[in-house]
Design a binder for these strands. Structure first.
Lengths: 156, 156
DNA sequence: TTACTACTTAAAGTTAACTTTAAGTCAATA
DNA sequence: TATTGACTTAAAGTTAACTTTAAGTAGTAA
């Protein structure tokens, strides 16, 4: 029912040194030790580790994750603050997704750009193309990419 | 019609040292200089910079961005390879979005968890709750978070 | 011509998040 | 009891992406 640091690391797909580092940074106050000082990860510890993974993957720095874990340790009096941290992180994730979607549009435009150039054998094919030659769902991204400041004279 | 490094940095919302660093790393081969050696950013340079921003924000390392810029410099013979790089990056972005959405679900569950705990004044309220007490759209996230390995005896 | 501000480079410094190393300990097996 | 492999800590090393510093140059305004 218990895992050593190596077994826990394998189960989580991280290096043992990573778990020791997290422990040293105070992210794993819930992990107990044997008399000999060896860490014993129990089933329920993996729930905390899964949350840490979630916070890390959504860009929360180690220090802030430690803050959250400290709040968990003090008990019920910190519920409101924990809720606030979760809500702030949720909003950051929504922003990240929006940002990625916007950048995805630019990559979609570039995909079309190079597909078209590849078919023509040269990027110069785009010199004679205007907005209506660009697939409608990519026009906004093209504007975004090119700054939309000035219109290039076509066919000149 | 030209920008110094400081003006370009301001327009892009980055530090001048960042643009100098990018230039040193070979990301800005298109930026020209005055006789005196001062960088002159022209309108069209901002298109390249916008693409660099896109690649950076989607997690591409500086080295790979340099690779892409080098490909741009060689001309039409590198179109296919540039297309491949764009396509690979597109897929990474789709993966990132999926990952973020999954982690968002966990945060949504935690939001509900702490809202409920806050209302009850204690996290212990969750000890007496079972799967059907969890909003249906959050059950999957709860399973994900708790590993779903074992069912806790209720009310014991 | 003298200030003055922003520019230049090279090199060193910073930060986050690990990873590696060194020296030693624990626990199970031959 | 001795060996083996995984564990322990502290401290140093790594990497990416900048930022800062130092020493000097460019270009403009008085």
């Amino acid at each position: 029912m218990f895992y050593t640091v190596g077994e826990a690391a394998k189960r989580l797909g991280v290096a043992p040194s990573t778990l020791r580092y997290y422990d040293k940074e105070g992210l794993l106050p819930f992990v107990e030790r044997t008399n000999g000082g060896i860490r014993m990860f129990k089933q329920s510890d993996f729930e905390g580790l899964r949350l840490i993974e979630c916070l890390k993957k959504t860009g929360m720095p180690i220090k802030d994750i430690k803050r959250f874990m400290d709040l968990c340790s003090v008990g019920d009096e910190s519920i409101s603050e924990r809720l606030e941290m979760i809500d702030r992180q949720r909003e950051r994730v929504l922003e990240q997704i929006e940002q990625l979607k916007e950048n995805l549009q630019i990559l979609d435009y570039k995909h079309w750009y190079y597909e078209t150039a590849k078919a023509a054998g040269t990027c110069a094919v785009h010199d004679s193309l205007s907005a209506q030659d660009v697939p409608s769902d990519l026009r906004a991204a093209r504007e975004n990419l090119e700054g939309g400041v000035q219109e290039r004279a076509k066919g000149s």
